[in-house]
């Protein structure tokens, strides 16, 4: 007997929720990025678990989707960190409410 699919989806949902909570509750740009990564990992678990359940050509597709997600997440993290550090040079802070030259 293997682990039912629903447990994987449940795990993904938990990671998704924690990621969202990190994003909305921790006011720090780097934390926001960490929350994003948690959500992405949740999505990846879904992709793999569903792909396995669907069978056919999907195991490969799920794998490939997840690989792309990992690669793009790395790229996005690189860009985001470059920008965040750049902003830090201007504003001396990594809290999102601090850069506030642009008016309300």
């Amino acid at each position: 007997m293997t682990v039912p699919l629903v447990w994987y989806v449940f795990l993904a949902l938990i990671l998704f929720t924690i990621g969202l909570v990190v994003i909305v509750s921790r006011h720090n740009l780097i934390y926001t990025l960490m929350g994003v990564e948690l959500i992405l990992n949740g999505a990846n678990i879904n992709f793999i678990a569903f792909a396995r359940a669907l069978g056919g050509k999907y195991p490969i597709a799920g794998n490939i989707f997840s690989i792309f997600v990992i690669v793009l997440a790395a790229a996005e993290a690189a860009v985001a960190l470059a920008i965040v550090l750049h902003v830090f040079g201007h504003f001396g802070s990594v809290r999102p409410e601090d850069p506030n030259m642009l008016r309300e």
């Binding site: 293997t2 629903v6 989806v9 396995r52 359940a53 069978g55 799920g62 794998n63």
Partner: peptide
């Protein structure tokens, strides 16, 4: 949900 007894992954 579909049961998770799929084939081995790639």
């Amino acid at each position: 949900l579909p049961s998770s007894q799929g084939k081995p992954m790639g």
